[in-house]
Simulated assay, not measured.
Amino acid sequence: MKVTTAVLAGGAAISLAPTVVGAGRLRQDARHQAERNEAIVARNQLDWHEPGTTVKRAETLTENVRLRQQRG
């Protein structure tokens, strides 16, 4: 292998490293978002099963979900 070919191959590998790290980060962020969504749904289900749930309580829950989703 010529030196120039080796240098180009090395440069390409170095250029791809941030892309691979970025893709891994996106997958991790997506997984964490899914976990947060599951936690929100579970909490809402528990709230709905509490005795004395009213229409006003339902409106409050809906607002809380909206605010949590905005925060990310």
Rank of each mutant, 00 (worst) to 15 (best):
V3Y: 14
T5Q: 12
T4Q: 09
D29P: 00
R43N: 06
E38S: 12
L8I: 08
V21P: 02
L61S: 10
R57W: 09
V55H: 14
K56Y: 09
V65H: 10
K56R: 10
N64C: 02
T5M: 12
A6C: 13
Q45P: 00
R68G: 01
A12K: 07
A34Q: 01
P18L: 11
T54F: 05
L26G: 08
V20N: 03
A30C: 01
R25N: 07
T54D: 06
R71Y: 11
G10K: 13
A12S: 11
Q33E: 14
N37L: 15
V3Q: 12
I40Q: 04
R25D: 00
R27Q: 06
M1A: 05
G22T: 11
G72M: 07
R25M: 07
W48K: 06
A39Y: 00
N44L: 13
R57Q: 11
V7S: 05
E59G: 08
R25T: 09
V65I: 12
A34L: 03
H32W: 12
T4Y: 09
T19H: 10
V21G: 12
R36N: 05
R68A: 15
G52L: 01
L61T: 00
T62W: 11
R71S: 03
G52R: 10
K2D: 15
L67D: 00
R25S: 11
A39F: 04
R31L: 08
R57I: 01
Q28N: 08
A34S: 05
V55S: 14
T53Y: 05
V20P: 01
P18F: 03
L16W: 14
G24M: 09
A58S: 13
R36G: 00
E50C: 00
T53G: 05
E38D: 11
A9F: 13
M1P: 01
K56P: 01
E50A: 04
A58G: 09
T60A: 12
I14E: 02
N64Q: 15
T4W: 10
V7A: 06
A13Q: 06
V65P: 02
V20G: 03
R57E: 08
L16E: 15
V7D: 01
Q70H: 06
